[in-house]
Design a binder for these strands. Structure first.
Lengths: 110, 110
DNA sequence: AAATAATATCGTAATATTGCAATATACAAA
DNA sequence: TTTGTATATTGCAATATTACGATATTATTT
């Protein structure tokens, strides 16, 4: 069917999945890495950094934004994008708690 | 086109994206959480835990496995699945380094 | 050997994603 | 006000994902 059964899962599971999904494309990973590399937030040249056409980059930015991974402010002519810590913290927390549980459980069965 | 331009991005970016993509579905998040909850690795009842049909669950398990998020061993009749620490560590490291850079950069522009 | 149980694969329909050309919008500068 | 610059939106084709019924596979039990 191609449609995800969102209602069958918890809000938390859906939230984590949507952030992970946003990071689930190399172009979007590259965007996040680039936003980190440039310290300043005047990021008007993301398009030039990627091997993709401008509409494609714009679409990827939109997906990252709607998942809460980045945020953008209008800065005159250009748009200032940067990482949204809240989104990153949610998925980071999920992965760290997995990591901690794995250590304490010493899952040595496989 | 619906085809990802994998070749245009680094191995690292592709690896991180493929793990994130595997976690980018609530059912697969639920599978990971369930595998953590049951301490034992004899996990023959993942299907009963999810609101999805058996072939669908099997497909999700396959995707998690091929991305390196879980691993499975044949245990007689059933299959023993558990978390693959390596995959988790890769994306955890990615997110932690973002988090650290955000703190040191004090990104206060947005 | 036949029946049972657990999981995988196949086939297919519905929907989503990726990518880009063309075009629109919004602001700045001349 | 026209021109240029940056970004978004639209429309569409190619491909991928999600879901599941039907069926196959594999190992255990009777």
């Amino acid at each position: 069917m191609g449609i995800t059964k969102t209602d069958s899962f918890s809000d938390s599971q859906n939230r984590i999945a949507s952030i992970a999904k946003a990071l689930g494309h190399p172009a979007r990973v590259a965007i996040v890495e680039y936003l980190l590399k440039v310290n300043t937030c005047i990021c008007g040249d993301i398009v030039n950094e990627l091997p993709l056409a401008q509409p494609t980059v714009s679409q990827h930015l939109k997906e990252l934004k709607s998942a809460g991974v980045i945020k953008g402010n209008i800065e005159g002519n250009a748009i200032c994008y940067c990482i949204d810590e809240k989104g990153i913290e949610i998925i980071k927390h999920f992965l760290m708690s997995i990591s901690i549980k794995l250590t304490t459980n010493k899952n040595n069965c496989c």
